[in-house]
């Protein structure tokens, strides 16, 4: 019987699955997890969460989403909604563990250690994100990966809006350089000339 249920749900749209989940149909919600689990875990990893921690937070995010599924009105995508929940949960965990306060220190360390990155390394988004400071990484991923506005990110991070905007701008500048066709080489070239 469970197999039959799963095959019935695989053909449904996310919005329909959400409607089923809102009636308490857990198999419909399981199908949503199957579809979007990787995306949510991916955002958390891009925010800097390690594998197991990212999975824990992603699980909590999905359970929270199930509890609050009636609040999902279909404005935006289901994946985007869960990503925002996951990002906030991860930040809460950082704040609880007092790891958020140390992000600015990590940022400075990361900046000094990554400017000399290997120019020959394959540059993709995940690699490029590693060149950002921790706070920049969190801010950029929250705004571009989880779809939070600057204000929402500032509120979640408990930082002034201007500070978040500065982190995002600095992060974008670094990413733009790293993701340019000659990204790493350009950085190396400037270092060589300087």
């Amino acid at each position: 019987m469970p197999g039959l249920g799963h095959s019935r749900f695989t053909s449904l749209h996310d919005v329909e699955l959400c409607a089923h989940a809102a009636t308490g149909e857990r198999r419909a919600f399981g199908e949503l997890v199957r579809r979007h689990g990787s995306a949510v875990r991916g955002v958390l990893r891009r925010m800097g969460a390690q594998g197991a921690e990212a999975d824990d937070v992603a699980q909590d995010a999905f359970l929270t989403a199930f509890e609050r599924i009636a609040e999902f009105r279909g404005e935006g995508t289901f994946a985007g909604w869960v990503k925002r929940i996951a990002a906030r949960l991860y930040l809460r965990r950082l704040q609880k563990d007092r790891r958020l306060g140390s992000l600015s220190t990590e940022a400075a360390e990361a900046e000094s250690s990554t400017n000399g990155g290997d120019a020959d390394a394959a540059i993709d988004l995940d690699e490029a994100l590693k060149t950002l400071g921790a706070t920049e990484r969190v801010c950029v991923t929250m705004c571009f990966g989880a779809g939070l506005s600057h204000s929402e990110a500032a509120e979640a991070l408990n930082l002034p809006l201007g500070t978040v905007k500065s982190h995002v701008k600095r992060g974008l500048d670094k990413l733009r350089t790293r993701l340019a066709p000659d990204g790493g080489a350009a950085v190396e070239g400037r270092r060589g000339n300087g």
């Binding site: 198999r27 919600f29 399981g30 997890v33 689990g37 991916g42 699980q59």
Partner: peptide
Amino acid sequence: EHPELADAGAFAERVE
């Protein structure tokens, strides 16, 4: 764009 993680099915089962 995100890669489909290898243990996506196992993750979904854990949540269920």
